Computed example of a mutant assay.
Amino acid sequence: MQKIVPNLWFQGNAAEGVEFYEHALPNSRVVETSNYPTEGLLEFQKPLAGELLTAVLEIDGYLVVLINAGEEFKPNPAISFLVNFDPSRDDDVKATLKGVWDRLSQGGTILMPLDNYPFSEYYGWLQDRYGVSWQLMLTNPEGEPRPFITPSLMFGGKAQNRANEAVNYYIATFNDSALGNFVPYDQQNGPANAGSVMYSDFTLEGQWFSAMDSGVEQDFTFTPGVSLMVNCKDQQEIDRLWEALSVVPEAEQCGWCMDQFGVSWQIAPEGMEELMKQPGAFERMLEMKKLDIDGLRGS
């Protein structure tokens, strides 16, 4: 089971987003869906009664959840998805990458054009029509293997120059975690200080992530538009991670919290989908900040 699952906030159009990604991304399929209940909703949720709530999308074995919600939040490039195209797995890898690029960019915005860069022979960064950001990269087959999809955290705005601090904190907080590559800026680069993170990658719970300090002034930072859901084995793990990651009381709601760097997390029990099928579980969850497994069960 994937321990940490990125969640993407959609503004009432998640069903449309599912169809878009199933067409745009290789080896993609929906593996599970859930719907809003028809009663017990908060006032702002009532227009979504009975509609799609979440869709779990599997992309080449990697899970991402699409949340169908309101207009409160939207993804931005502070958290993007690095998609690694490995020449050793595909004889026509450039054409494959270009095809994915063309599909994802329809109706979107190009942040860095698809081109040859010092760090990759073929790379581009785009924001799709839903605001979700993707970095498509031709990888070096002689390098250490990396997964097809890696969530990438860009520290800019209020979080500028905090990437190294954050990576070290996350590694200390999660199990089976370690630093991989670390490449510092050797001199001041825009808002990025010398010695801050030009690129790093690391594992949390055995899963790869990457982080960088932005080399360009940004007027945005992390938001709940992209959150990281942690599937916890028991209440003890929920309590421990909540204590470590929740520092913004006003962000605490239904298992959601925000850390000191502004990154949003969902601290949830394994098997949340089954728990939510219990009569009254949705209403009980709406009254919670940190999730209580027994409380969700009504016991």
Rank of each mutant, 00 (worst) to 15 (best):
T173R: 02
G190F: 06
E270I: 14
F282K: 08
S177M: 03
K277Y: 07
M258H: 01
N193A: 15
A268T: 15
V263E: 07
W256I: 03
Y185H: 14
S196G: 08
F220E: 11
A172H: 08
A178G: 08
Y185N: 14
G280F: 08
M276N: 06
P279Q: 08
G195L: 13
S200L: 11
V247D: 14
M258P: 00
F261T: 01
G215F: 07
M212Q: 09
Q207K: 08
E237R: 07
Q253S: 07
K233I: 12
D219F: 05
S177R: 02
C257K: 01
C257T: 07
W265C: 03
I171V: 11
T223M: 03
N193P: 03
I238S: 13
V226Q: 01
G215P: 02
P224F: 04
Q187T: 10
F182S: 13
N193D: 14
E217V: 15
S264K: 00
F282D: 11
F174P: 08
E165M: 06
V226S: 00
Q187R: 13
Q236T: 14
D186G: 09
S196L: 06
G215H: 04
N231A: 15
E165I: 03
V216C: 05
L204D: 10
R240F: 09
G280M: 08
D239L: 10
D259W: 00
P269I: 11
W265H: 04
P249H: 12
C254Q: 06
E250Y: 13
V167F: 06
Q207G: 07
W242I: 11
A172V: 01
Q207N: 13
Q260P: 01
D239Q: 08
Q266H: 08
V230R: 00
P269Q: 10
S214V: 04
E205A: 15
S196K: 04
E243V: 11
A163M: 04
V197H: 05
L245V: 11
E252D: 13
Q207R: 07
G262D: 00
E165R: 05
D201Q: 12
R162D: 01
A268D: 08
A211W: 05
Y185M: 12
N181M: 15
Q253F: 01
F282V: 15
Q188R: 11
M272R: 09
Y199W: 12
F222A: 09
M258S: 04
N231E: 15
R240K: 14
M229S: 02
V216L: 12
Y170A: 11
S177P: 03
W208G: 03
D176S: 09
N189P: 01
D201E: 14
A192F: 03
E217H: 13
V248R: 07
D259N: 02
Q187M: 12
Q218H: 14
A281H: 10
Y185G: 11
M198K: 06
C254R: 02
Q253C: 03
A163T: 05
V230D: 00
A251R: 01
M198V: 04
G280K: 09
G215V: 03
A163Q: 02
W208D: 06
V230M: 00
A251H: 02
Q278L: 06
V167N: 06
